[in-house]
């Protein structure tokens, strides 16, 4: 799937600007960004719900807007199952079989058993966790090549969340399906995603493989004899400060920030393990982050 210079204006407001990226088979791609950064708009544009003001989304070189039949390879799982709440499991299987020719009913039933989901006369009767699991079971049963998930674990309890993550990782490992997830659970994305796309003000701020992204920064705990000098403070992200003890994120060695800190002869300079959340803070800034 290729996303080519997608822009979208809504109500005189430029929500997406020139978004370009590729999605390779068998990858789990995390889309992260602060509230209102345009993540959901991007996902809705990727499946043709919204028409882009500019740009295109192509699968195997064919535009999904001009050739909507290519969307047999894409399934969108929104953060709510409102649209299908009046269907029974049986009706929904019938509907999906008619939409996605590769839908595997046997596989669907196996997954339903595996995740202890009973058939129901109304999807709306399922609990929130069951709805989330069910949406994923249906999505993977369609055998679509691209599964697009909007905040799949939002509002779920820990147990259900684990099951949702389990099904995601297992399914991707078993087949060549690509999963595109927008999530504010950075710890979960860290555990699953190989690729991270950061959206800032409607633009792709960065698109890296997770390890590469982490290697761009260092998280360190540093203690100065006095307070941190102003010229250093302007070049680092301070995650936490207790007296003269700072937990900070600094760009990697090539920028010279680390050398500048060491020149100040700190009492302690200790490198800590970097998490995706730390990269998020470094890249997108602010303490009250993520949507």
């Amino acid at each position: 799937m290729k996303v080519e210079q997608v822009s979208k204006r809504i109500h005189q407001h430029q929500v997406l600007k020139d978004i370009t990226f590729d999605i390779k088979p068998g990858n789990i791609v995390g889309i992260i960004g602060r509230n209102g950064a345009g993540k959901t708009t991007l996902l809705r544009t990727l499946v043709g719900i919204l028409d882009p003001s500019h740009g295109d989304v192509k699968i195997d070189g064919k535009s999904i807007y001009k050739h909507p039949e290519t969307k047999q390879d894409v399934i969108f799982v929104p953060d709510s199952s409102e649209a299908l709440k009046s269907y029974s499991t049986k009706e929904l299987v019938k509907l999906y079989k008619a939409v996605y020719p590769r839908f595997e009913e046997k596989y669907f039933n196996d997954l339903m058993d595996r995740f202890s989901l009973p058939p129901t006369k109304k999807i709306g009767n399922y609990s929130k966790g069951m709805k989330a699991l069910f949406s994923l079971v249906v999505a993977f049963s369609t055998k679509a090549r691209y599964i697009i998930l909007d905040e799949p674990t939002d509002g779920l309890d820990v147990i259900v969340k684990r099951r949702v993550l389990k099904i995601l990782v297992e399914e991707v490992a078993l087949s060549d399906v690509s999963v595109i997830i927008s999530s504010h659970r950075l710890d979960e994305l860290e555990f699953m995603a190989n690729d991270i796309i950061m959206i800032k003000d409607g633009k792709v701020d960065s698109h890296y493989e997770l390890d590469e992204m982490k290697s761009m920064y260092k998280k360190v705990q540093v203690v100065f004899s006095q307070y941190m000098p102003k010229e250093i403070e302007s070049q680092v992200n301070i995650l936490n400060q207790t007296g003269r003890v700072y937990t900070i994120i600094i760009p990697n060695e090539s920028t010279g920030v680390e050398a500048a800190i060491k020149n100040e002869n700190p009492l302690l300079f200790e490198e800590l393990t970097m998490s995706l959340e730390d990269v998020f803070v470094a890249k997108l800034g602010g303490e009250e982050f993520v949507s």
Partner: peptide, 15 residues
């Protein structure tokens, strides 16, 4: 009024 339009427009059919 509901999210059904999202579902319909995400289907692989011409509008």
């Amino acid at each position: 009024n509901t999210r059904r339009n999202d579902f319909t427009f995400s289907l692989p059919f011409k509008r």
